[in-house]
């Protein structure tokens, strides 16, 4: 890596033992990903907010039957899965940047990032399993909670 003399960057890289200030192409990939995923997420999340909070009955109309009705359509499952993955990677990468900027000690940075990665993996795996294994008509559900297309018990 070449360094530019006195680059007048908004934030000078902090020198210090064990503090790497550049990670080569991975940081470039992360920078590109934030922009590309961001544009896609604007569409996915605005669509999600419009359908769930604006069209129809809004937040008060959201219940199990509402979710089951949406996920009966494969397109909404794909939409939500893509939204889950992109939003989680985008958000986790954003939090990683914030940790790198404000956690001064190497050990603190490491532990915060371990915690961040663990939470992110847990949430992505859980959310993915839920979308793939969702059952709109579970056996033994309380009366009146299922969508109208479920067979009568």
């Amino acid at each position: 890596m070449t360094t530019i003399a006195d680059p007048k960057a908004p934030r000078a890289p902090r020198p210090g033992p064990g503090r790497r200030v550049t990670r080569g192409n991975l940081e470039l990939a992360s920078w590109v990903f934030m922009r590309v995923s961001g544009v896609v997420l604007v569409i996915l999340i605005f669509g999600h907010l419009f359908v769930n909070l604006v069209a129809g009955g809004g937040v008060k109309a959201i219940d199990f039957a509402f979710v089951a009705g949406k996920w009966a359509d494969l397109r909404w499952r794909v939409w939500d899965l893509l939204m889950l993955w992109l939003a989680m990677v985008h958000g986790t990468n954003g939090l990683r940047t914030i940790i790198n900027d404000y956690a001064e000690k190497s050990a603190t940075r490491l532990w915060l990032k371990v915690l961040l990665a663990a939470s992110a993996i847990l949430v992505v795996v859980l959310g993915t399993l839920v979308i793939f294994t969702f059952d709109p008509c579970p056996v033994g559900a309380a009366a009146g909670t299922l969508p109208s297309f479920c067979p009568a018990p």
Binding site: F64, A65, L126, G127, L129, V130, F134, A141, A142, T145
Partner: peptide, 8 residues
């Protein structure tokens, strides 16, 4: 994820 636990 609670949709996977029970509707209620």
């Amino acid at each position: 994820s609670l949709v996977r636990v029970a509707p209620e």
